[in-house]
Write a protein that binds this DNA or RNA. Structure first.
Length: 767
DNA sequence: GACCTGCTGCGGGTTG
C-alpha cells in the first residue's frame, strides 16, 4: 500500500503532458529505477548515476523528470544528451520525438550524418534536447569556441548514456574534459545524469561523472541513504541509484572440445587435396553443435574475433543450405558495412522468423535488438564484465538467461606446453563464470594519466579561445578537480615545451600560447575530433555495393579467395589510390585477418583459477569433456607440485608462478628486464630465459633483491622498453612522458612489488 | 593475444 501510494506521489510530480504520454502508452506503473530517479532529478540540484541493466527503463527515468523540469521552466532550457554511438542517437531520437512533440519541446540529433542546415537551425535557437556524440561536441568547441558559452547558456542537465563504455579510456577522459570546459565557459555547474550498466564498484562511476566529488559523495551517502530501504545514496554530491530488478535466473552449460593434432608432414603437396587445418576442423565440430542447439530461435554467438565471426557465419549457413532450409545466421562486426549490420539487427528484431547473430562486442552496447533466448560464448570471454553484458541480452519475458560456453583444448602430447597441461582456457572460462555467479566484475582502471588525450585537449582549448596562457591552461585542465588533475605542474610544463618543439604550439612575445604551424593543420582537419586512433582500411566492394572494410596492413592479392560478410569472394581488383578492393562471389575461401592487441586479465580471475585447480569441487555446468579437462588440469597441477612452487623449471625457461594480473606480471617483467634478465609474459606466469649466468638459484636471488630494493624510477624501469606508442598523440610526447603514460596504463607496480615482498620467505629457501 | 567508437567547412555545380 505504501509503495503504491508513494508511486502515485512520484507520478504526480511529473508534468501533465508526460503523465498523458504514460497513460497513452498503457503503462500501468513506473519501473523501480524511475520511481527512485524522478524526485531526485526533478530538483536539478545534484549529479545522479542510474545503474540498471539494458531495457530497465533508464532513459525514461532520466528524461521524464528532466523534461518535466523543462516544461515547468518559464524560459527556454536545454538538455544535452551524450551517447557513444550514432546509432543510439538515432534510436533515442525516434523514441523522444514522439513524446517531445506533445510537449512542444524540439529534439535535435547532432552527429556526422546530420546535415549542416539542421545543425544551423539548432544554433539559431539552442533549446530543447540536443543528442550528440563526444566527437561532435569536440568539433563545436574547436570550430565555434567563441559561441560555446552562448550555445550552452540554458543547459539544465547533461545526460551521459552508456557511462560504463566511457570509464577508463581516452574517449571518457575527453568527455570529462568537454563537460568541464563547457561548465567553465558558462561559469556554473550543470547537474550531470549518468546512465550505466551495474558495475562492481559504483563509486568509480560517481568519481567519473564528477571528478573529485564522487568518492566523497558515496561515503557521506552511506549514512543518509537508508530511509527508503533502497541502495540509493542521497547524502553525497553524487547520488547513486541502483535498480533492484537485476535478478534473472541463469542457466549455464560449458562444453569441452578437443582440437585434433595436425599431421607432422603434409601427406600431399597437391594444393587441392590439402588437409583442413585443426582450427577449421574444430570450428566445423562446434558449428555443428551450435546449429543443433540454437536453430529455430533468436540467439547471439560471440566467437571473440571478427575472423571467427566470418568463419562461423559461413559454416552455419552452409549447414542451412545442405538441409535446404532458409539461412538464419547473420554476421555483425565493426568492419561490416552499415547496411549489412542493419540487416542483422532487423532480423534479430523480427519475432516471426528464427535469427541468430554471430557477432563481436558490437552487439554488447545498448542498441535496440530486443532480447534473445541464449548466448553462446566460443572460447574464453575477454572479461567478466563483458560476459555479464553479453548475458544481459538473454532471457525473454521473465525466462532464464542461457549461456552455452565452448572450451577448446589441445591434445596432451609430449610437446604440450604448461598452458595446455593446465587446461588454462577451460579453467579460466570456468573461473569467470563462477565470478559472474558471485556478481563480481572487473573495475575499470583508474590510474591512467591520459597524456595523449591531454595533448588533444590542450590544442582544442587553444583553438577554442584563439590563444591562452600556460597558467590558464593548467588551471582549466589540470588543477583539481579538473579531469587531468593527476598531471603535476612540472609534467605539464614539460609537455608544453615538447609540444613547442614539435611545432604543435608556439608562444607569442606576450607569452600567449597559440597553435603552431603543424598544430593549426591538425586541429583544422576533421580527424582531430576523435581521441582514439584508427587504422587505415580498404573498402570492400562487390558489384557497386559496399560490403565493409579490411585493414590495409593485411596482404591481399588479386585472385585471392576470402570470406567476408559470411560469404565467399574472389578479389578481382585492388585500387591502391582509392583504397578499394573489388570482389565477386566465389566458392571456397579463408577468413580474413584483422589486427588487435590482447586483453588484460584481472588478478581476481587468476586467483579464482588457482583456487579451482587446488580444489575438488566440480561445477555442475561442465559437460563430461570439460570435466575431463578440469580433472587433467588438477592432475597436472598436483603432479607438478605447483601449489608449493614459485619457480618451475621448464628446460630452456623458468616460469615464475605469480597467478597475478597481466598488469602486475608486466611490471615484474619490467623489473627483471631493467636488471638485465630476459623475460616474457605467459598468461598467469612470467617466463624467464635461462642462461649460463642465470639458473634457478640466481633467479631467486634476483627476485629477493627486487623485493628488498625500493621501486626504481619509471625511466630506469622502462629504459630497455621499445615501441611504447599506443595512443593517438603518443608520438608527440617526450620519452619521459611516454614512459610515464605507458606505465600508468599498463603496469601495476604496487601489486608487483607487494607480491615480491610477500614471497621473500619462500624465495629464501633454495630447492 | 580482442573488440569498438567518431569526424568539418567549403567550393562548385544544379535546380526551382
Amino acid at each position: 500500500m505504501t509503495a503504491s501510494h508513494s508511486e502515485t506521489a512520484v507520478f504526480d510530480l511529473l508534468d501533465r503532458g508526460i503523465q498523458q504520454f504514460i497513460w497513452q502508452q498503457n503503462w500501468h506503473e513506473l519501473r523501480d529505477i524511475q520511481g527512485q530517479a524522478i524526485p531526485l532529478i526533478l530538483k536539478a540540484d545534484r549529479d545522479v548515476i542510474l545503474a540498471a541493466p539494458t531495457a530497465a527503463g533508464k532513459t525514461e527515468a532520466a528524461f521524464f523528470p528532466a523534461l518535466s523540469h523543462l516544461c515547468q521552466s518559464p524560459t527556454p532550457r536545454l538538455i544535452v544528451y551524450i551517447s557513444p554511438l550514432k546509432a543510439l542517437i538515432n534510436d533515442q531520437f525516434g523514441r523522444l520525438e514522439i513524446l517531445c512533440e506533445q510537449l512542444d519541446i524540439p529534439v535535435w540529433p547532432w552527429h556526422g550524418d546530420i546535415s549542416a542546415s539542421r545543425k544551423q537551425k539548432f544554433l539559431a535557437h539552442p533549446a530543447g534536447v540536443l543528442l550528440i556524440t563526444p566527437e561532435a561536441l569536440e568539433a563545436m568547441m574547436c570550430g565555434r569556441g567563441s559561441a560555446v558559452a552562448k550555445i550552452f547558456a540554458n543547459t539544465a542537465y547533461f545526460v551521459v548514456d552508456e557511462l560504463h563504455a566511457f570509464i577508463g579510456n581516452p574517449r571518457g577522459k575527453q568527455l570529462q574534459s568537454l563537460l568541464h570546459r563547457i561548465e567553465r565557459a558558462m561559469g556554473r555547474q550543470v547537474p550531470r545524469i549518468g546512465l550505466s550498466a551495474t558495475m562492481g564498484d559504483m563509486r568509480l562511476a560517481a568519481e567519473f561523472i564528477r571528478p573529485g566529488q564522487g568518492e566523497a559523495g558515496q561515503e557521506a551517502g552511506q549514512e543518509a541513504g537508508q530511509e527508503a530501504g533502497q541502495e540509493a545514496n542521497q547524502g553525497g554530491r553524487v547520488a547513486l541509484l541502483t535498480s533492484k530488478s537485476d535478478q534473472t535466473d541463469l542457466k549455464i552449460a560449458i562444453k569441452g572440445f578437443l582440437k585434433p593434432t595436425p599431421p607432422p608432414v603434409p601427406p600431399s603437396k597437391d594444393k587441392n587435396a590439402e588437409e583442413e587445418e585443426p582450427d577449421q576442423i574444430i570450428a566445423r565440430q562446434i558449428a555443428a553443435h551450435l546449429f543443433q542447439t540454437l536453430r529455430g530461435h533468436h540467439n547471439l554467438v560471440f566467437p571473440n574475433a571478427r575472423r571467427e565471426v566470418e568463419r562461423y557465419t559461413l559454416l552455419l549457413n552452409d549447414l542451412c543450405d545442405s538441409l535446404g532450409i532458409a539461412k538464419e545466421f547473420w554476421p555483425h562486426h565493426g568492419n561490416l558495412a552499415k547496411e549489412i549490420r542493419t540487416d542483422t539487427e532487423i532480423a534479430l528484431k523480427q519475432s516471426d522468423r528464427a535469427a541468430t547473430a554471430i557477432c563481436t562486442n558490437t552487439l554488447e552496447l545498448g542498441l535496440d535488438i530486443g532480447r534473445v533466448r541464449a548466448i553462446a560464448q566460443v572460447g574464453v570471454p575477454p572479461g567478466v564484465a563483458s560476459l555479464r553484458q553479453r548475458l544481459g541480452r538473454s532471457g525473454r519475458r521473465g525466462e532464464a538467461a542461457i549461456l552455452y560456453g565452448y572450451a577448446i583444448e589441445e591434445a596432451l602430447d609430449a610437446e604440450a606446453s604448461l598452458a595446455t597441461l593446465l587446461r588454462l582456457g577451460t579453467v579460466q572460462m570456468t573461473a569467470m563464470v563462477l565470478l559472474l555467479i558471485e556478481k563480481w566484475v572487473e573495475p575499470p582502471r583508474a590510474s591512467n594519466l591520459h597524456l595523449s588525450t591531454l595533448v588533444q585537449q590542450i590544442l582544442s582549448v587553444i583553438a577554442q579561445y584563439g590563444g591562452t596562457t600556460a597558467r590558464q591552461l593548467f588551471s582549466l585542465l589540470c588543477a583539481a578537480p579538473a579531469p587531468f588533475h593527476a598531471v603535476s605542474q612540472a609534467v605539464f610544463m614539460n609537455l608544453l615545451r615538447q609540444l613547442g618543439e614539435q611545432e604543435l604550439i608556439t608562444q607569442d612575445p606576450s607569452g600567449l600560447l597559440l597553435l603552431g604551424e603543424k598544430g593549426e593543420k591538425m586541429v583544422n582537419h576533421y580527424t582531430f575530433y576523435a581521441a582514439f586512433t584508427s587504422e587505415e582500411e580498404f573498402r570492400v566492394i562487390s558489384g557497386g555495393k559496399n560490403l565493409g572494410s579490411l585493414p590495409i596492413s593485411q596482404m591481399v592479392t588479386v585472385d585471392q579467395l576470402i570470406i567476408f560478410a559470411g560469404k565467399t569472394w574472389r578479389v578481382d581488383e585492388i585500387d591502391d589510390s582509392h583504397k578499394a578492393l573489388y570482389v565477386s562471389p566465389a566458392r571456397g575461401a579463408m577468413p580474413p585477418i584483422f589486427n588487435g592487441a590482447g586483453c588484460r586479465v584481472h588478478t581476481r580471475v587468476r586467483q579464482k583459477m588457482r583456487q579451482l585447480l587446488e580444489g575438488d569441487d566440480v561445477p555442475s555446468f561442465l559437460d563430461p569433456t570439460a570435466r575431463r579437462f578440469l580433472a587433467e588440469a588438477r592432475e597436472a597441477y598436483r603432479r607438478g607440485g605447483l601449489a608449493d612452487k614459485i619457480i618451475l623449471d621448464q628446460g630452456r625457461e623458468m616460469m615464475i608462478l605469480t597467478w597475478l594480473s597481466d598488469d602486475a606480471n608486466e611490471a615484474i617483467l619490467c623489473l627483471l628486464a631493467a636488471s638485465g634478465v630476459k623475460a616474457a609474459l605467459a598468461g598467469p606466469f612470467v617466463a624467464v630465459q635461462k642462461s649460463p649466468d642465470l639458473n634457478e638459484e640466481g633467479l631467486r636471488r634476483r627476485l629477493r633483491a627486487l623485493a628488498a630494493a625500493p621501486l626504481p624510477p619509471i625511466p630506469q624501469l622502462l629504459a630497455p622498453a621499445k615501441n611504447l606508442l599506443r595512443e593517438k598523440w603518443d608520438w608527440a610526447l617526450s620519452r619521459d612522458a611516454l614512459q610515464a603514460s605507458y606505465a600508468s596504463q599498463f603496469l601495476d607496480l604496487t601489486e608487483a612489488h607487494g607480491w615480491l615482498k610477500s614471497q621473500t620467505a619462500f624465495l629464501g629457501n633454495s630447492g
